[in-house]
């Protein structure tokens, strides 16, 4: 059902964990639906210097979270905001069609974390 790449990211998720003093946090999904993602980012000079995730959900939800953090790490905020669900899926060598929408939430989580960071920064000004 899943590609080798998905299984690899499921087996050995990259950047899994929390960042206690995160600059931005994005929470997307809902345990009722079966998928919940928390994305934590650390920003320095407009760049994602660190990113971590915690995910409740199916294999695809965990693998897409992991892949998204790999794609986003080190990128500028503008570059990170351009990462799409499609990018995550294609870097995982595809996802089963049924998983494209329900479990591929990681980029939404990333965008939410960046928005959260920008909001906090705006308030400080």
């Amino acid at each position: 059902m899943y590609s080798e790449k998905v299984l690899d990211h499921f087996r050995n998720p990259r950047n899994m964990g929390e960042i206690p003093d995160a600059d931005g946090v994005g929470i997307v999904g809902n345990p009722v639906c079966g998928d919940l993602m928390n994305i934590y980012i650390k920003v320095k000079d407009n760049r994602l210097v660190d990113i971590k995730f915690k995910t409740f959900g199916c294999g695809a939800a965990i693998a897409t979270s992991s892949m998204m953090t790999e794609l986003a790490k080190g990128k500028t905020l503008e570059e990170a905001l351009k990462i799409t669900r499609g990018d995550v899926a294609s870097n995982l060598e595809g996802l089963p069609p049924v998983k494209m929408h329900c479990s591929n939430l990681a980029t939404d989580g990333l965008h939410a974390a960046i928005e959260n960071y920008l909001e906090k920064k705006g308030r400080k000004k």
């Binding site: 299984l7 499921f10 087996r11 199916c58 939800a61 965990i62």
Partner: peptide, 14 residues
């Protein structure tokens, strides 16, 4: 509690 069944199935299938 706190985890999802499909990821359990996948882990065991591996």
């Amino acid at each position: 509690s706190y985890i999802e069944g499909e990821s359990l199935i996948l882990s065991l299938d591996m």
